[in-house]
């Protein structure tokens, strides 16, 4: 709808996936996985609502559609959002609380290496841009922490990240996501 979708497309195609931009309900048809990209979460939620897509996306993800959510996408999935726009609502599918821009404004955006559970070898380059701060986690598996707060969580077939793997040049998380989408698809 809005945001860094072409960067995800490039990363997913580099690891062998076929992609489609989702802007209408019809675009959701027969997907193996969906990416909720970084962007402005208020804008993305409003556009989804106006296109009548919030319910169908929620249903698809609840029904087991593999989901990779980055930054604003993580905010869209979160059950509770603080410091959002009044009346901002999202999908509410992930048992976490996030604070919008919890690390500060743009001048506080940063890069930091991360140790991510399940990724062997070297650290992952974390690119944080006006990132959400995860303040509470419930029924989710925390895959990585930074500075005492979770920055990557997983629940079932949902992976939500506070940072931007699509800007990092490191394809490992996209490769893992494609593997996740391929296993158990059409089950």
């Amino acid at each position: 709808m809005q945001g860094a979708f072409s960067e995800h497309v490039r990363a997913l195609e580099a690891v062998g996936a076929r992609t489609r931009l989702v802007r209408t309900i019809d675009d959701l048809d027969s997907l193996d996985g969906i990416v909720l990209p970084g962007g402005e979460s208020t804008t993305m939620a409003m556009l989804m609502e106006r296109a009548g897509m919030l319910d169908s996306v929620r249903e698809a993800i609840r029904g087991g559609l593999a989901t990779l959510a980055t930054c604003a996408g993580m905010i869209l999935l979160a059950r509770d959002i603080t410091d959002g726009m009044p009346g901002q609502h999202g999908l509410g599918l992930l048992d976490i609380s996030v604070r919008r821009n919890g690390y500060g404004r743009q001048v506080d955006s940063f890069e930091a290496p991360l140790h991510i559970d399940g990724l062997n070898g070297k650290t992952f380059p974390g690119v944080f841009i006006r990132a959400p701060l995860v303040e509470r986690t419930g029924d989710v598996h925390v895959m990585a922490n930074y500075d005492g707060h979770p920055v990557a969580v997983r629940h079932g077939r949902i992976v939500a990240l506070g940072f931007h793997p699509e800007l990092s040049g490191d394809l490992r998380l996209h490769r893992e996501f494609v593997r996740l989408a391929n296993t158990g698809a059409n089950q």
């Binding site: 743009q106 890069e111 944080f128 800007l167």
Partner: peptide, 27 residues
């Protein structure tokens, strides 16, 4: 550019500066 201060990571690198614009795309 970009400055490092311990475990706070590197702030203000070109990647995060250009990255915000990437988040504004389609908007």
């Amino acid at each position: 550019n970009g400055s490092s201060n311990g475990n706070e990571g590197v702030k203000g690198s070109f990647k995060v500066k250009a990255g915000l614009a990437q988040m504004l795309k389609g908007g």
